[in-house]
Design a protein around this nucleic acid. Structure first.
Length: 191
DNA sequence: CGCCTTTGACCGGCGC
DNA sequence: GCGCCGGTCAAAGGCG
């Protein structure tokens, strides 16, 4: 897989990338000078930030984000219309209490290898975006975590991934890596 | 055969 | 009540 560059507009995600073969970079946690190609946090009016950042868990802040996003609208009319729609979505999403976080990825691949297994259950064309939004569910039978993946129409190299919920099981790929090590440690511990 | 993606249909919330 | 929109379902088909 190719290298990915992450940019999180407000706060870092709860779960770090788990696949060591994928050198993900999180810009907010690193000084921009330390990156080879810094990706400044940006607000895109064509992404549905209201949906992406409507979290009650405090993972993401909606207030300043929404103000900035509204300011990015091209015309006054568009701005009012867009803000109105976003506020409606926020009020709708506040009814759900599942933790959510979103982050941007600069990548040619829409799907990130985050170590978990996902099944795609839908794809929809969304308003204000050229690219469709894809819906995925964690394949673990007891896990109800979902994620949405959408490419920005303004910057086609950037993919926005939104996670909803918290996995209630270990990461399969991480366990695959750790299990032999743990067995070896248990074996050695007997001496 | 099991697991996955694709895709049109369907549903519920919301504004007018 | 109607239409729009985002999210989900489920049948069909592909692939290893």
């Amino acid at each position: 897989m190719e290298g990915h560059e992450f940019s999180i507009p407000s706060t870092p995600p709860l779960l770090p990338p788990l696949n060591p073969s994928s050198p993900y970079l999180f810009t907010p946690s690193l000084p921009s000078s330390s990156l080879q190609t810094p990706l400044e946090p940006q607000i895109f009016s064509d992404i549905d930030w209201a949906t992406l950042f409507s979290s009650q868990s405090g993972v993401a802040e909606t207030g300043p984000m929404m103000e900035n996003s509204c300011a990015m609208a091209e015309s006054k009319g568009e701005e009012e219309k867009w803000c109105k729609e976003s506020k409606r979505k926020i009020s709708r999403m506040k009814k759900t209490s599942r933790p959510r976080f979103a982050f941007q990825t600069r990548s040619v691949d829409d799907i990130l290898d985050d170590g978990y297994r996902w099944r795609k259950y839908g794809q929809k064309a969304v308003k204000n975006s050229t690219y469709p939004r894809s819906y995925y569910r964690c394949t673990h039978h007891t896990c109800n975590v979902k994620k949405q993946v959408q490419r920005l129409s303004k910057d086609t190299s950037i993919v926005v991934t939104t996670y909803e919920g918290i996995h209630n099981h270990p990461c399969e790929k991480l366990m695959e890596t750790l299990t032999p090590l743990l067995k070896q440690m248990q074996f050695l511990a007997r001496f």
